Amino acid sequence: MAMRQSDKPQVALLVTDLDNTLWDWFETWHVSFSAMLRRLEEMSGIPQPQLEVEIKAVHQRRGTSEYSALLTELPSLQKLHPNGDLLQIYDSAIHVLNSERVRTTRLYPGVRETVEELRQRNVPVVAYTESVAYWSEWRIKKTGLDGLISTLYTAPDHDLPLGLTVNDLRKLPAEEYGLRATDHRHVPKGVFKPDTSILSKIITDRGLSPDQVVYVGDSLMKDVVMAQRTGAYDVHAQYGAAQHRPEYELLRRVSHWTEEDVERERTISAGGDINPNYTLQREFSELLLHFDFREA
């Protein structure tokens, strides 16, 4: 029997993760990062396994796997080019990273249509990600979601090496940076999912109760657990799960995650004890089958 509209939970706010929920972050990361690694090995002669070890150390120190000044802090490159401008010397490797990122960044099927439908219903869409500010903004602009997402919550940008400024990394005109219509707010440093403080603040700031809110994300141990602890409707974006892909091992080898994080993720992805109440198996648009989104 078809579900009647009144049978669905009535909700007034959608809060969503970004990476591997609205777009395939992992696919883009893997294609672009592995292309850079191959070019870096070709240009420097340093074996990729050695580069990976050094990259992981930098990523852990900076707390992100998207560190824009990465090449400036790799000991092997520093030793190979003492006092050299590493960003200039290895510009070709950076170029292939950026060009592949541009080529592969796109929304999952059904995302734009669903967000536009909610906008027509006057239901706001808020994004909350642990990714750093700059790349989250870039992807929202690249995918055309600036303004369709009402508010964006991100981690602050990573620190830079002594003597290097943001302007040293930015090559485009100033107007190319930042969002035009989406309100961008930063999460305090040291706050990570499944900590409920940010999601709870998003809900209370909107004058809503948790049972009026849907939260969707691809991570069981972060997104689903956080939503369940908050009392919001939890939705697992199962289509975005990437941990089972063979290519995911590269991310594990160079990520800023701790070894404990990696092992816990392996356990959960292999069949842990976290059970989402709702699951999107194929598309983001399946949200409309589960919930009655209405203006508060």
Results as ranks from 00 to 15, higher is better:
N98E: 08
N98T: 02
S99V: 02
S99G: 00
E100W: 09
E100A: 06
R101A: 09
V102K: 13
V102R: 10
T104Q: 12
T105G: 05
T105F: 12
T105S: 13
R106E: 09
L107H: 06
L107I: 11
P109Q: 07
G110N: 04
G110K: 04
G110H: 04
G110D: 06
V111Y: 13
V111A: 12
E113V: 12
E113M: 12
E113C: 09
T114Q: 02
T114D: 01
T114L: 07
V115S: 00
E116P: 02
E116Q: 06
E116D: 10
E116S: 05
E117F: 05
L118C: 09
R119A: 08
R119V: 01
Q120T: 13
R121D: 08
R121T: 10
V123T: 02
P124Y: 09
P124K: 06
V125F: 02
V125L: 02
V125Q: 01
V126M: 08
V126R: 02
V126D: 01
V126C: 05
A127E: 00
A127C: 14
Y128I: 15
Y128R: 13
Y128F: 15
Y128G: 00
E130D: 14
E130P: 00
E130C: 01
S131P: 00
S131M: 02
S131E: 02
V132T: 09
V132I: 14
V132Y: 01
W135A: 01
W135K: 07
W135S: 01
S136L: 05
E137S: 08
E137N: 04
E137D: 14
E137M: 07
W138R: 10
K141R: 12
K142R: 15
K142W: 14
K142T: 15
T143R: 11
L145V: 03
D146I: 09
D146V: 05
D146R: 10
G147K: 09
G147S: 08
G147V: 13
G147D: 08
I149S: 00
S150N: 06
